[in-house]
């Protein structure tokens, strides 16, 4: 009896083999296991034979949308600036997508980074991915040499120990609070759609901070980012951070200093998160990528909560809805406007 992930893996291989063999796609973007347990690597395959290298498990945490634009571009003939776009259809590319990744792809399409017609999305409803750091914590940060995954538990082993861990206990925070596990765009589906998840206290983590006094919030924030080495791994892992010149690297104008300065680090994190406002799908790549264990996801989570509260919008849920910061309603909330709140208080 195979596990859910084994079944998904074999279905993926079958579908991808078919897509490549028929010539429907020129390449497929999926995962394969790396040399280190619990670290899955993105993998691009170009032949049906390679389909068997694809794997699926609970450690597929790097957002594949991040690799999609470059992969598509690799199939375009080289062009100089001002040259017209190539004539005729360009090769298509296949990609795996869960709920959040597919929503990133919607945004990439809306932001002209990805041509929907050139992407064949193979959708998978996410069961939630596992946080490697949680697993390591659960085994007391001992070396891990092998992890075997059952449907509801993980068997973790290392030198001189073997431990079975409840899977849900080590699922990433973003997945535990995710309500949209199903892909919103797909051309083929592996397994069934699960529908929206019912999550109580979806924004609990954010709310726990919101209730603090301003000085305590500052103390939380400044402590959280204190260890930041400004390596920008969080930015690099994000499928939405694709500016050719990031504001942190810009010298004209210089928004932040290049050295590690408290204020500059804070402004980096504030602006990085703000740039994701209305776009972030809480895929968790940033946090997964951080070598210092900074929990910066909560920053984008806060913006996600506010965008939902204020504008009833969630990023990438619908190809037709304009991004929330590129549109407006006449009666958008404005209690924060001082002249309005003074009026309100008087009333």
């Amino acid at each position: 009896m195979s596990t859910v992930n084994e079944k998904i893996t074999s279905e993926i291989r079958e579908k991808v083999r078919e897509l490549l063999a028929s010539g429907h796609v020129a390449a497929f973007l999926g995962y394969t296991s790396g040399s280190v347990p619990m670290v899955m690597q993105p993998l691009i395959i170009r032949t049906p034979e390679d389909a068997d290298r694809l794997e699926w498990n609970s450690f597929c945490v790097l957002n594949l949308a991040n690799y999609l634009p470059a992969l598509l571009k690799s199939f375009e003939p080289p062009r100089r600036p001002g040259d017209p776009p190539p004539e005729g259809p360009l090769p298509k590319v296949g990609v795996l997508a869960t709920g959040c990744w597919s929503r990133n792809m919607v945004i990439q399409v809306q932001e002209n980074q990805v041509d929907r017609d050139r992407v064949v999305v193979v959708g998978i409803s996410s069961r939630g991915m596992v946080d490697r750091k949680k697993v390591l914590a659960a085994v007391g940060h001992r070396d891990v040499t092998a992890v075997y995954e059952y449907d509801h538990s993980l068997k973790v082993s290392g030198p001189g120990y073997e431990r079975e861990i409840n899977r849900w206990d080590v699922v990433r925070d973003n997945c535990r609070t995710c309500v949209h596990p199903d892909p919103v765009i797909f051309d083929h589906m592996i397994g069934d759609l699960k529908g929206e998840r019912d999550v109580a206290d979806r924004f609990r983590q954010v709310e726990d901070i919101e209730v603090l006094a301003p000085e305590d919030r500052w103390s939380w924030f400044s402590t959280e980012i204190a260890s930041c080495i400004r390596c920008y791994a969080c930015r690099n892992a994000c499928p939405l951070c694709y500016c050719p010149t990031c504001f942190v690297d810009d010298s004209r104008p210089q928004w932040v200093g290049k050295s590690i300065d408290k204020a500059d680090t804070a402004i980096f994190h504030i602006l990085r998160a703000y740039h994701c406002a209305g776009r972030c799908t809480d895929c968790g790549s940033c946090e997964s990528a951080c070598p210092m264990g900074i929990k910066m996801r909560i920053l984008t989570r806060k913006l996600q909560k506010d965008v939902l509260e204020l504008y009833g919008a969630e990023a990438g849920m619908d190809m037709q809805s304009p991004p929330p910061l590129s549109t407006y309603k006449m009666d958008d909330p404005q209690d924060f406007i001082l002249t309005e709140s003074i009026k309100g208080e008087e009333k």
Binding site: V206, I209, E210, P214, E215, D216, R217, W218, S219, W220, F221, S222, A266, H269, I270, A273, Y274, A277, G278, L299, K302, L303, D306, V307, L310, Y311, P324, L325, S326, Y328, K329, M330, D332, P333, Q334, F336, I337, L338, T339
Partner: peptide
């Protein structure tokens, strides 16, 4: 109208990271 959305989110966000609510004001 666009500004109102940008500012609403920014104000809430700055408050979230501990900037005092009265530092940044919109009218």
């Amino acid at each position: 109208y666009y500004a109102r959305r940008r500012f609403a989110l920014l104000k809430r966000f700055l408050e979230f990271v501990g900037v005092e609510p009265d530092r940044v004001n919109f009218t």
